[in-house]
Design a binder for these strands. Structure first.
Lengths: 236, 236
DNA sequence: TTGATTTATAGACCATCGGTCGGTATGGTA
DNA sequence: TACCATACCGACCGATGGTCTATAAATCAA
């Protein structure tokens, strides 16, 4: 059986793809290295040629996730027409501009990520992502403080809180999506929208903004995404 | 060599003690079951008589931690002289009343807990602890809303934020304690006190309180604990 | 006290894990 | 042709979490 993939770079990516699929479905601990190489159709020797350990594979996977997430918000960061508040709002509702169906797909990933068996994987991605995002957030907040939009004595601290809130939102959404019946989901959506409103107001006040300045997603967006996700689940 | 421990209940606790020591120093993954049973001086058969798996051992350990933490704040919860704000402040600076040296010991535990190799252990403890603490926090906040002290439309959400802030504080403190030189620590203490002030003000505003209502520990407490911890490190 | 039954312990054994190692095929360069 | 680095193979290794059978100790019934 001839190898289809020739270029080493692509082979590495291919291994990452198979590892990602296995880690997300079974978890990092439970998916064995033998599973990964069997799935990728390569030998142990080949694997250890590209990665120094299973741990290094996880690291590389987390880095790739973080890079993709960063690329997803590059447009917001590069947009010269945005002021600090606009940029912050853009980051907080990054998927706002995306089509509902695409967003639903993205949320499905989060739903998987927050499962307990993916704790290790999630933690790694988180570390890599915050290392990239945190400085960007700090810069935006600093800029806002300088031009008088925001008021705070601790931009790094506020950036941390913003990241915490962002993560917590994802967590709540993920759990809501995973919830059982349609009635359950209705309740979950209500709780979730209330929670997002709380985060918005909290950030308004922490940053010394008038209530209603921070917007995490557009009104009704959460409900739209979640019902789309729901429909996709029932279909697929 | 005769067994000293007779009562089964005590034997279980004894295993937990040895497991705790090993898990905290080496991490859950790296400390093997053989290490645990060797340390406890028992056979595999004995171990599997008391615990169904290594995983179950972790679970039991996390539960014990959570119970101990809950017992540590029972006094604040039972004190009839405390109003909701007093109770909340008490929980947020639970070690305030303890002697500095004792507190330093407690923080040393956190320092260990936040190390990456203890991620799994820490996560389990966290789950068990929030399951216990969250309802208590919600009750206190609800009570405060009823008597007009607090103002919020989402007590559960605020409770979550309080827990997030509490955890984040521990994380920052743990990292500060672990930092290298004395000069590093001076910088770390300053950043940390700034961060705590931010959390205080954030909670004030989220709860609709006048600035300065929420107090996480007493002024200078952090510096006192950290220098004590530092001294203990150098000595021991 | 004795016999029966349950609880507690021992340790050989097992499949599987992440990782190593000696070797081979391939393609470019001199 | 000779040579060498890269890419790859799969048998093998020690250690791991977990199982199983055997037995010793405690408990209970008569």
């Amino acid at each position: 059986m001839p190898r289809v993939i020739k270029h080493p770079e692509l082979r590495r990516e291919d291994i990452l793809d198979h590892a990602q699929a296995l880690f997300l479905t079974q978890g990092y601990d439970r998916a064995s290295l033998n599973d990964v190489i069997a799935s990728a159709g390569i030998s142990k020797g080949a694997f250890y040629h590209y990665f120094s350990s299973k741990e290094a594979l996880l690291e590389a996977l987390a880095d790739r996730f973080a890079r993709q997430a960063l690329a997803g918000v590059q447009g917001i960061l590069d947009d010269p027409g945005l002021d600090p508040l606009g940029r912050l709002n853009g980051l907080l509702s990054q998927s706002r501009q995306a089509k509902i169906e695409t967003a639903a797909e993205a949320w499905a990933l989060f739903e998987t990520m927050f499962r307990p068996e993916n704790l290790v994987l999630f933690h790694r991605i988180n570390l890599a992502a915050s290392a990239s995002f945190s400085p960007l957030l700090v810069r935006i907040i600093r800029q806002g403080v300088e031009d008088g939009t925001f008021r705070t004595f601790d931009p790094e601290g506020v950036a941390d809180i913003v990241m915490q809130f962002g993560l917590a939102t994802h967590d709540v959404v993920a759990k809501a999506i995973a919830s059982g019946s349609d009635a359950d989901m209705e309740v979950a959506i209500e709780i979730l929208e209330k929670r997002v409103r709380l985060y918005e107001i909290a950030l308004d006040r922490i940053l010394g903004l008038p209530d209603g300045s921070i917007r995490i997603g557009e009104p009704g967006y959460i409900r739209a995404v979640m019902t789309a996700r729901r429909k996709a689940d029932k279909a697929g």
